[in-house]
């Protein structure tokens, strides 16, 4: 084994991981999909959504924030974990107002795509029908609070040119909601609106003027199950 590599096993399958990697990254490198929502590429993981919950020994841990260690044994695909994940997706759907038929992100939304993967029909929890605002005051960006899952991807990933924050959070717990610094001139730019829309896993950040361009049937998750791109690599490793 190369220097800096270690062995772990996921669902009984031994894989080689790089030291310092998260379980999610190591799994992905080996063609194993662990569903995620708040985890995004090279951003510092935040562990806010709990979508990636796996079992290490008897403990549940979030796979995006847990670093691999030699000999670690991870459970990912059990019936119990699948059920947990489906239940968590349902909670997210009832917590906000996710009206897929009228959402610009439909077909390209990661929350919806995960719900398709786990075949959610009707959530087992009652819908909250909570009232949240839609802020369309910026020239290029719409902030649809009804759809925000508080993953913090925008806060962590969309920055001004000199690196300062544009997105932030107000309040905590159930009242938590994102806010945009509208006094910042960069917040009003098309570039930032596009970045925000691209980084948001759901339809909470929408760039004005570009919706519904891709016909139904050709959108990202219309035919492709989320995670199947990762799983396709499995046979190659």
């Amino acid at each position: 084994m190369e220097q800096g590599h270690i062995k772990i096993n996921i669902d009984g399958r031994e894989i080689i991981a790089k030291e310092g990697q998260s379980i999610v990254q190591a799994a992905r490198d080996n063609g194993i999909f662990i569903p995620t929502l708040c985890d995004f590429k090279s951003l510092q993981p935040a562990g806010t959504c709990r979508m990636c919950l796996v079992k290490v020994g008897e403990r549940y841990v979030s796979a995006c924030t847990t670093i691999v260690s030699q000999g670690m044994s991870v459970e990912n695909e059990s019936v119990e974990l699948k059920e947990n994940r489906k239940s968590l997706i349902e909670m997210l759907f009832v917590e906000g107002n996710h009206m897929c038929p009228s959402c610009e992100k439909s077909g390209n939304c990661q929350l919806q795509a995960l719900a398709y993967r786990y075949q959610m029909t009707a959530p087992r929890y009652p819908f909250s029908f909570t009232q949240r605002k839609i802020d369309a005051s910026l020239p290029y960006l719409v902030v649809e609070h009804n759809r925000c899952i508080q993953c913090l991807r925008c806060v962590r990933g969309v920055k001004a040119k000199d690196g300062h924050d544009i997105f932030g959070f107000i309040d905590r717990g159930g009242a938590i909601h994102i806010s945009v610094d509208t006094t910042d001139t960069e917040a009003a730019t098309e570039v930032i609106a596009q970045k925000a829309m691209d980084i948001c896993p759901v339809g909470a950040l929408i760039k004005k003027g570009g919706a519904y361009r891709v016909p139904i049937g050709e959108r990202k998750y219309d035919n492709e199950v989320i995670g199947s791109d990762v799983e396709k690599e499995r046979d190659k490793v």
């Binding site: 009206m99 897929c100 038929p101 009707a122 819908f127 029908f129 909570t130 009232q131």
Partner: peptide, 19 residues
């Protein structure tokens, strides 16, 4: 069988919920 998003979630008519 509940057919369609309105039967399952209340759908677009349910956008009035909370008002």
């Amino acid at each position: 069988v509940a057919v369609g998003q309105c039967a399952i979630t209340g759908g677009l008519p349910a956008m009035r919920n909370g008002i």
